[in-house]
Amino acid sequence: MFIPKDPFNIIIGGVGGQGNVLASQILGRVLVAGGRVVTIGETYGASQRGGPVMSHLRVSAGDPFSPLIPEGQCDLLVSLEPVEALRILGRYGNPAVQVLTNVRTVQPLDVLSGDASYPELDTVLAALGSLSRRLWRINATEIALEMGDPILANMVILGALAHLEVLPFTRRAFQGALEGVLPDSRMEENLDAFDRGARAVEELV
């Protein structure tokens, strides 16, 4: 499958602990197995503890690019948390960006404490819609909870992403990318999460 831009810049965003790094690693391995040159910059460390996290994926046919996407250069945003999607567009968005977001919110400590407020989900989705060319939503966390483990939301959203056909990303490639990263005993559960994600994604804009 042809990728229309080089480098094609993907951001996977969310909150520390949502399995963001693993999702970016799996997607990156899919693209490398497909012959692409990929660079991924990951933010974690202290931000593992409940802060915003982002992985930047640069996908190219030729040279490696830097692990940080320049301002305004995101082509595809996948976010495990809705308000984090908006935070990321604030710096990296542009009129052509495509966005896939989980709709389950993770309340920041600043909201719990009353120092900040969390906007209504519809308001967030409307803002995301007005700042993107295409917008898809999925309740990845709810699907993962139905499966018994909220951490599977990252695999659910990868399934949704594959279904959109904006990247050369198949179920088979997903399975190949899991090998060597996750133990075989976890394979079936992760494939199930992927399939459920592919079925549940809906387009908003």
Partner: peptide, 20 residues
């Protein structure tokens, strides 16, 4: 676009502090 994206973020996005 930059102006709008900056404004929407400032209006809607809460801080997300680190914590245990």
């Amino acid at each position: 676009y930059a102006a709008k994206a900056t404004q929407e973020t400032a209006d809607l996005v809460p801080a997300r502090s680190l914590g245990f």
